[in-house]
């Protein structure tokens, strides 16, 4: 039994008089890929943002890779890669410049060759000199995936990575998750596509009203249970 890479103890996040999350206890082993399901507002995105230190927990203690989230947030951020719905670079940068900016900001070495292969992989090689504000929704999502690929973070936090992507793109996300798991990394995947999420993960967690209501190893048979809990 290896030590857990993410330890969450009694985690809670309050907005005024309402709890976005309460009493979350989880521990996730390294190399595990976890699918998070839940309706809008059930707290799963809040959970990811707490792990990525964008938010501050109201109660509870979180350790990521053995580092206390509250005290060593900077070191935690170096190990975590969060995918949100937009890429993080300035809209006037070309994709290549953007990636250069991104890798520099995240203290990654810049390597022309590997960057080429990343762009090849996300299918944007021919658009690498176009400015980012000319990209469509799906293209921008692919650019975000390129950001994720250009880092070697231990933990991937993917917030609805399938939105706006064509079947090719979805397959790309799947392959990213698979490769990351094969390399021993941990993935947390938030998605509304239950089938895909179950296939892509070792473990499924369902959030409802800020609580974990289901936490089981993933299998195709779990689908009915998940859908039932989701209501």
């Amino acid at each position: 039994m290896t030590a857990a890479v993410i330890e969450v103890h009694d985690l809670g996040k309050r907005y005024g008089e309402r709890d976005a999350l309460r009493g979350i206890d989880l521990s996730i082993e390294p190399g595990c890929s976890v699918a998070l399901f839940g309706h809008n507002g059930s707290g799963k995105t809040t959970f990811l943002k707490l792990l990525a230190t964008l938010l501050k927990p109201t109660t509870g203690r979180v350790t990521v890779a053995g580092l206390d989230l509250a005290r060593r947030s900077c070191a935690v951020r170096a190990r975590v890669s969060l995918l949100l719905d937009r890429p993080f670079f300035p809209p006037r940068f070309s994709l290549e410049e953007g990636l250069r900016y991104f890798t520099d900001l995240y203290e990654q070495p810049w390597d022309e060759q590997s960057m080429k292969s990343v762009l090849e992989r996300v299918g944007l090689r021919r658009r690498r000199l176009d400015p980012l504000n000319t990209f469509s929704r799906g293209m921008a999502q692919r650019a975000s995936l390129a950001c994720v690929l250009s880092r070697d973070a231990e933990i991937l936090l993917l917030d609805e990575p399938y939105t706006g992507l064509d079947p090719d793109g979805c397959a790309l996300v799947d392959s990213i998750v698979d490769d990351h798991s094969a390399a021993g990394g941990t993935t947390l995947l938030v998605t509304h596509e239950v089938d895909r999420g179950l296939r892509r993960s070792d473990r499924s967690i369902v959030f409802r009203g800020g609580r974990v209501v289901l936490d089981e190893p993933s299998s195709p048979e779990l689908k009915d249970a998940v859908l039932e809990v989701l209501g």
């Binding site: 907005y15 005024g16 976005a20």
Partner: peptide
């Protein structure tokens, strides 16, 4: 209470 609803819905 009204804003908390909105914030939770818009989480992403």
């Amino acid at each position: 209470s009204l804003w908390a609803v909105r914030r939770l819905e818009e989480g992403a």
